[in-house]
């Protein structure tokens, strides 16, 4: 059974900062509350299933399986972060796995509703589009920095504490 998402939960999500209470309620009506257990696979690399998720509580790990079979962690995401936007935006298969590291509560925006939201000219939708773009940009910039360090620094330097990001920041 699907449960509804209380609009108040959306206030803790940085992506939605600047949304009015009315807009939180409007968005909450499009969402479904999902609870998953530790170690559950939320999104499977290669799949096109699922939707877009706001992490309300708990932690997920985003990882990518390489052709060699090796699996690398791309990020850990906790409360307030969003996952699953890439496939929702471009329609291509999921580029990574998303696993629950703890018990996780998520607000799920199903694919059809996401598609509606990112094409809608309604002011709330347009604001969401811009905020989502900003979230993607910031994630991309962090990944870029990490990539540059991994590609250019000697491993010992790359592993030193000052080069480690805080994804939760």
């Amino acid at each position: 059974m699907n449960m509804t998402v209380e609009p108040v939960f959306l206030k803790a999500i940085p992506l939605l900062r600047g949304f009015s209470s009315v807009e939180h309620r409007e968005l909450a009506r499009m969402l479904e509350l999902v609870r998953i257990d530790t170690d559950t696979l939320l999104i499977e690399q290669g799949s096109t299933q699922g939707g877009f998720y706001f992490v309300l509580d708990g932690q997920v790990r985003i990882s990518r399986k390489l052709p060699s079979g090796r699996e690398i962690t791309l990020a850990r995401m906790g409360k307030g972060h969003v996952v699953g936007f890439l496939t929702m935006v471009d329609g291509q298969p999921r580029s990574a796995n998303v696993h629950a590291v703890t018990k996780v509560a998520l607000a799920h925006l199903p694919a059809d509703r996401f598609a509606e939201l990112i094409r809608s000219p309604k002011p709330m939708a347009v604001r969401f589009q811009r905020l989502l773009a900003r979230e993607m940009i910031r994630t991309l910039r962090r990944a870029n920095q990490r990539f540059t360090r991994a590609a250019t620094l000697p491993l010992e330097d790359f592993m030193s504490p000052e080069h480690i990001d805080d994804e939760q920041a």
């Binding site: 990518r64 935006v89 291509q92 580029s95």
Partner: peptide, 19 residues
């Protein structure tokens, strides 16, 4: 958003290539 998604895919491919 489409452009950003393409940049994301490229970045992930580069990470994969690096490894």
């Amino acid at each position: 958003l489409q452009l950003l998604a393409a940049r994301f895919r490229t970045m992930e491919d580069r990470i994969e290539e690096l490894f």
